[in-house]
Each structure stands twice: as C-alpha cells, then as structure tokens.
Lab assay of single mutants.
Amino acid sequence: QVALSRTQVCGILREELFQGDAFHQSDTHIFIIMGASGDLAKKKIYPTIWWLFRDGLLPENTFIVGYARSRLTVADIRKQSEPFFKATPEEKLKLEDFFARNSYVAGQYDDAASYQRLNSHMNALHLGSQANRLFYLALPPTVYEAVTKNIHESCMSQIGWNRIIVEKPFGRDLQSSDRLSNHISSLFREDQIYRIDHYLGKEMVQNLMVLRFANRIFGPIWNRDNIACVILTFKEPFGTEGRGGYFDEFGIIRDVMQNHLLQMLCLVAMEKPASTNSDDVRDEKVKVLKCISEVQANNVVLGQYVGNPDGEGEATKGYLDDPTVPRGSTTATFAAVVLYVENERWDGVPFILRCGKALNERKAEVRLQFHDVAGDIFHQQCKRNELVIRVQPNEAVYTKMMTKKPGMFFNPEESELDLTYGNRYKNVKLPDAYERLILDVFCGSQMHFVRSDELREAWRIFTPLLHQIELEKPKPIPYIYGSRGPTEADELMKRVGFQYEGTYKWVNPHKL
C-alpha cells in the first residue's frame, strides 16, 4: 500500500502544474464570482478556492472578487462561507491571508454602469489591468444573457486571457439551449467557454479513460460480442427537503440524466481518441451522441416518491408533501431510460440510465454486464461477469466473477477481482471535483468540460421526450421513500436483457 498525506498529494500536483506551459504561476489572475451571495458560491466555490489557495495550487498573485446585487462586505462573505471551509486552528494565518486577497463589488446584473465599476475595481488591483480574468457564473440561467453581454462589453482583460465558467442547466430543451449557446458564442470563442459538469471532475469518471485505453485486457472485450448491457446509475437517499420548488422546474431527467449520466455513457462508449488533447476527446464523445436516436417512450419509466409510513423524519414525507412543490405536480423524481448506440461496436446493446431521489442508498456507478459463458459445464450455477466502476461513495473498480467454492467439488461461487483505489492508495485525500475543474480552467484544459456541439446532441436525444411529458403530463409511478424505485423499472431492465441475480454482496474494501 502507498500512504500519501494531503501535503504529498498537493506537492505532486504542484510539480505537475508548474512543469506545464499552460499554468502561468507568476502571472496575476483575477477570479470573479458572479452571484457571490448565492448558495453555490457559499457552499462550493469559495470553499474550493480556499482549498486550492491553502494547498498552494493557485497562481501566487490571485485575487478573488465577488459580485452580486446584495450590498455585502468581505466580512459578510466570510461569515456565510467559512463554515464550509473546514479550516483547522493551525490554518488561521493562512485564512487571514486568503481573505486579504478577497474583495466585493455590489451591482445589478443588467446595468452597464455596475460592470464599469467592477472593471475599475479590477484595474485598481495590483497589475489588475493586465491580469488573466476568470469569470464564474454562479447564477440562474435567466440572467446569463445580460451578464455575459455586460462582461464582454465592460470587463474583459485587454492583455491577459479571459475565460468564463457556465453552470448547468444549459437551457431547458434543445431550442433554449441553442439560443443560449448562440448568444454566448457570439461574445466569446469556444476556447474561452467552460460549461461545467462537476461529474466530469470526479476521480473515477476520469479513471474510465485510463482503464479503457491503457489496459490491453479490456480492449478486445469492450464491444457487443461480449457486453450484454451497460447500466449507469445515480441514486440519492434523500428527497427534495424543502427545495422542491427549484427541482420541480427541471425534474430528474434535466437535473441528472441528460448531463451526468449521458457524459458517463460517452466515456464508456467512445472510441479511442487520437490523443488526450481536449478536442480529440470531445470529438469522440460527440460521435457517440450522434449514434444515439431520440428516446422512445416505451423505453422510459418515470416515478415519484411517496412517504414511507414506517419511516422516520423526512422519510415519512412524499414529494408532494414538500411545501415548495406545486400542488398535484407530476414532475418525476425517478427515471429509467434505455438508449442504444447504433454503431458497429455497440449495435443492440442497451445502455440503461437510472437516477432518482429518496432511494435506498447513495450511489453513482457504471456497471457493464457481460454475456453468459458459452457451453456451460457447471449446471447453470454460473452468474454473469460484471465490471463495476463505483464513482461514489467509496470509489472502487471491481470485476464480479466466478471462482471455485472451497471444498471437494467443482462448485462455482461469485467473488470479485478488486482493482480499488483504496487498497493501493491508503487514506489518500484526493482533490474534489470542483478543485480539479477550476484548476483545469486556470490551465486552459477543456477536456472535462462540455463543448457546444456535445451539448446540442445531448438535448436532441431528450427534448422530444421532455416535450411529450410536458404536454401529456403522465402521472409518475409512486414508489416508497427509501425503496429501490418503481418495480416497473426493474421490469424494463429485465425486458431489454439485464439479469439481476441478487445473490452477490459487494464487500467494501475500504472497511476491511
């Protein structure tokens, strides 16, 4: 086992960053958080920038500027975001240094004079007029057009580079997404736009490419001749908990499936790229999406959770019991969808996408189930092999396979070949997804960000279904809070070829 401390991990990262040409360590950078008073800024962006600063992973002359409508001070920003920093008493001095680099400007999102004030403020910072500028839009999409237009007109660096990070949702359907994309691309070049999907920053999602293309053993079996089906799962054990009003506007397909799960599907299904260059990788992902037809209604199961009468606390409440959810809402909190990649490698292999709230566990994984062994000599005792990439929690890679049961006879039983990170790298604290992705933006690497043509294809696949749901308002199937979801989803999976045995229990190697 390799035991690495946080300091050692960050030392390795620093070495990698400083050796590259793309990370300008000594240049002045300004990180501007648009929507600095909001939840995302408070819980994710400010803490992430602090962790990067604490670990010495930001360029040395980096300033952080918050911008929002609320009249706040840096002290206010500190008060609301610091509880999420997880700072230790030993880091007190470092924390003071961090907040000394912070400033805040209040202004409207659609007022040109406010942006001119913001620009004057940035120019007044040390070497601010020639600094590289990175704008993070932690804002609702309704203000994107006004904000990007004003940034472009008043706040661009004339000497350094300018980059803009856009948070999902990128529209509600193909038409609104196209409108937003066309607007942003009329102001910024594609190499300046970073559409963030934080799932692409997760260690195991990034590991998929290495697993596939750096190991000879997987190449020959990664196709329709050997793989019976692919299941991509995202499960949350909690409901909307008072935030249903926002969720109800989008629903589970827009929230998770059309982005996170579809991105994971691309990494499983794509061909080997010409290189690890950002556009070479994204070219292959677009090719996969172009091979997927629009979702067919007979390959869809929609569910909505109801309270568990035997549960406790939140578990007793259904989705419609959330006071922020519109009365009688038919918005799905669970969806199972089957897609097919219609190309030579994957023809006929079902890709089953499942996601839901208020389920029995927290889990995100990719599961490849292989065909049955031909010419069975073990009297149907063999179960199908599976390769599982567990994204969260407890990152893991393992192969479910058959071995001989101890004893006199040739009785096979299920076991696993474990390729888990935790076994080799004991207690290594890896940077989280937002840390990686923000560092990628500083480096100018777009590999783990969504390109406009990729986004367009993703919406093309799901828009007809979303429009049909909005028009017909089908009643989702009720499922109990804390269950596996509607049984109809299991029946759909069985119908397209997935075999669920229920006889195997994964042993978490992190707890051995």
Rank of each mutant, 00 (worst) to 15 (best):
residue 253 I to C: 10
residue 253 I to Y: 00
residue 253 I to H: 04
residue 254 R to N: 05
residue 254 R to Q: 00
residue 254 R to Y: 02
residue 255 D to K: 03
residue 257 M to F: 09
residue 257 M to W: 00
residue 258 Q to I: 04
residue 259 N to G: 00
residue 260 H to M: 03
residue 260 H to L: 01
residue 261 L to A: 09
residue 262 L to P: 04
residue 263 Q to F: 00
residue 264 M to G: 02
residue 265 L to E: 02
residue 266 C to D: 06
residue 268 V to T: 11
residue 269 A to Q: 00
residue 269 A to W: 01
residue 270 M to P: 02
residue 270 M to S: 07
residue 271 E to Y: 05
residue 273 P to V: 00
residue 273 P to M: 05
residue 275 S to N: 08
residue 275 S to W: 03
residue 278 S to V: 08
residue 278 S to W: 07
residue 278 S to A: 15
residue 279 D to L: 12
residue 280 D to T: 14
residue 280 D to M: 10
residue 282 R to M: 00
residue 282 R to G: 00
residue 282 R to E: 04
residue 282 R to T: 04
residue 284 E to L: 08
residue 284 E to H: 08
residue 285 K to T: 04
residue 286 V to W: 07
residue 287 K to M: 08
residue 288 V to R: 03
residue 288 V to Y: 03
residue 288 V to F: 08
residue 288 V to S: 08
residue 289 L to T: 09
residue 290 K to L: 05
residue 290 K to S: 12
residue 291 C to V: 13
residue 291 C to Y: 11
residue 292 I to C: 14
residue 293 S to G: 12
residue 294 E to I: 10
residue 295 V to I: 12
residue 296 Q to G: 12
residue 296 Q to V: 13
residue 296 Q to T: 14
residue 299 N to L: 10
residue 299 N to E: 14
residue 299 N to P: 07
residue 300 V to G: 09
residue 301 V to I: 13
residue 302 L to A: 07
residue 302 L to N: 06
residue 304 Q to S: 07
residue 305 Y to E: 00
residue 305 Y to C: 05
residue 305 Y to V: 07
residue 306 V to P: 00
residue 308 N to K: 14
residue 308 N to A: 11
residue 309 P to A: 13
residue 309 P to F: 09
residue 309 P to N: 14
residue 311 G to R: 12
residue 314 E to W: 10
residue 315 A to W: 10
residue 315 A to L: 12
residue 315 A to C: 11
residue 316 T to V: 12
residue 317 K to S: 13
residue 318 G to D: 13
residue 318 G to L: 00
residue 320 L to F: 09
residue 320 L to H: 12
residue 321 D to E: 12
residue 321 D to Y: 05
residue 321 D to M: 10
residue 321 D to G: 09
residue 322 D to P: 02
residue 322 D to H: 05
residue 322 D to L: 04
residue 323 P to R: 14
residue 324 T to I: 07
residue 324 T to Q: 12
residue 325 V to F: 03
residue 325 V to M: 06
residue 326 P to N: 06
residue 327 R to L: 13
residue 327 R to H: 12
residue 330 T to F: 11
residue 330 T to H: 13
residue 330 T to I: 11
residue 331 T to V: 07
residue 331 T to L: 00
residue 331 T to Y: 00
residue 332 A to Q: 08
residue 334 F to V: 02
residue 335 A to H: 00
residue 336 A to D: 07
residue 338 V to P: 10
residue 339 L to F: 08
residue 339 L to V: 12
residue 340 Y to I: 08
residue 341 V to G: 02
residue 341 V to P: 05
residue 342 E to A: 14
residue 343 N to S: 13
residue 344 E to G: 09
residue 344 E to T: 11
residue 347 D to V: 07
residue 349 V to S: 03
residue 350 P to K: 05
residue 350 P to G: 01
residue 351 F to V: 04
residue 352 I to C: 00
residue 354 R to T: 04
residue 356 G to V: 01
residue 357 K to I: 05
residue 357 K to V: 01
residue 358 A to W: 03
residue 358 A to S: 09
residue 358 A to N: 02
residue 359 L to W: 04
residue 359 L to F: 04
residue 359 L to H: 06
residue 360 N to G: 10
residue 362 R to K: 09
residue 363 K to L: 06
residue 363 K to N: 07
residue 364 A to H: 04
residue 365 E to R: 02
residue 367 R to C: 01
residue 367 R to H: 01
residue 370 F to C: 06
residue 371 H to C: 10
residue 372 D to R: 08
residue 372 D to C: 07
residue 372 D to H: 09
residue 373 V to Y: 06
residue 374 A to D: 15
residue 375 G to T: 14
residue 376 D to L: 07
residue 376 D to T: 08
residue 379 H to C: 11
residue 379 H to F: 10
residue 380 Q to I: 07
residue 380 Q to L: 07
residue 381 Q to N: 12
residue 381 Q to D: 13
residue 381 Q to R: 10
residue 382 C to W: 10
residue 384 R to Y: 02
residue 384 R to H: 05
residue 385 N to T: 01
residue 386 E to W: 04
residue 386 E to F: 01
residue 387 L to Q: 01
residue 388 V to W: 03
residue 388 V to D: 01
residue 391 V to G: 04
residue 393 P to C: 07
residue 393 P to M: 04
residue 395 E to Q: 09
residue 395 E to G: 10
residue 396 A to E: 00
residue 397 V to C: 09
residue 397 V to N: 02
residue 398 Y to T: 01
residue 400 K to H: 00
residue 400 K to A: 03
residue 400 K to W: 02
residue 401 M to Q: 07
residue 402 M to G: 04
residue 403 T to E: 05
residue 404 K to P: 05
residue 404 K to C: 01
residue 405 K to D: 06
residue 406 P to I: 06
residue 406 P to R: 07
residue 407 G to Q: 08
residue 407 G to D: 11
residue 408 M to E: 04
residue 408 M to S: 06
residue 409 F to V: 15
residue 409 F to E: 14
residue 409 F to N: 13
residue 410 F to I: 14
residue 411 N to Y: 09
residue 412 P to M: 09
residue 413 E to Y: 07
residue 414 E to R: 07
residue 416 E to R: 00
residue 417 L to F: 01
residue 417 L to A: 04
residue 418 D to V: 00
residue 421 Y to S: 03
residue 422 G to L: 09
residue 422 G to Q: 13
residue 424 R to E: 03
residue 425 Y to A: 06
residue 426 K to M: 09
residue 427 N to A: 08
residue 428 V to P: 11
residue 428 V to E: 15
residue 430 L to G: 04
residue 436 R to L: 05
residue 437 L to E: 05
residue 439 L to Y: 09
residue 440 D to A: 06
residue 440 D to Q: 09
residue 440 D to T: 04
residue 440 D to F: 02
residue 441 V to C: 14
residue 441 V to F: 06
residue 442 F to A: 14
residue 442 F to N: 08
residue 443 C to W: 13
residue 444 G to E: 07
residue 444 G to A: 10
residue 445 S to G: 14
residue 446 Q to I: 10
residue 447 M to N: 02
residue 448 H to Y: 08
residue 448 H to G: 07
residue 455 L to C: 06
residue 455 L to E: 05
residue 458 A to N: 02
residue 458 A to T: 00
residue 458 A to H: 05
residue 458 A to M: 05
residue 459 W to E: 02
residue 459 W to N: 00
residue 459 W to A: 01
residue 460 R to N: 11
residue 464 P to A: 10
residue 465 L to P: 05
residue 466 L to P: 02
residue 466 L to M: 09
residue 467 H to R: 15
residue 468 Q to S: 13
residue 468 Q to N: 15
residue 468 Q to K: 14
residue 471 L to C: 15
residue 471 L to Y: 12
residue 473 K to W: 09
residue 474 P to H: 14
residue 474 P to M: 12
residue 474 P to D: 13
residue 476 P to R: 00
residue 478 P to A: 10
residue 478 P to M: 08
residue 480 I to C: 10
residue 482 G to C: 05
residue 482 G to E: 05
residue 483 S to Q: 11
residue 484 R to N: 01
residue 484 R to H: 05
residue 485 G to D: 00
residue 487 T to W: 13
residue 487 T to S: 13
residue 489 A to S: 13
residue 490 D to Y: 08
residue 495 R to H: 14
residue 497 G to V: 02
residue 499 Q to K: 15
residue 501 E to K: 09
residue 501 E to F: 10
residue 503 T to W: 07
residue 503 T to E: 11
residue 504 Y to S: 06
residue 506 W to S: 05
residue 506 W to K: 05
residue 506 W to F: 07
residue 506 W to C: 03
residue 506 W to M: 05
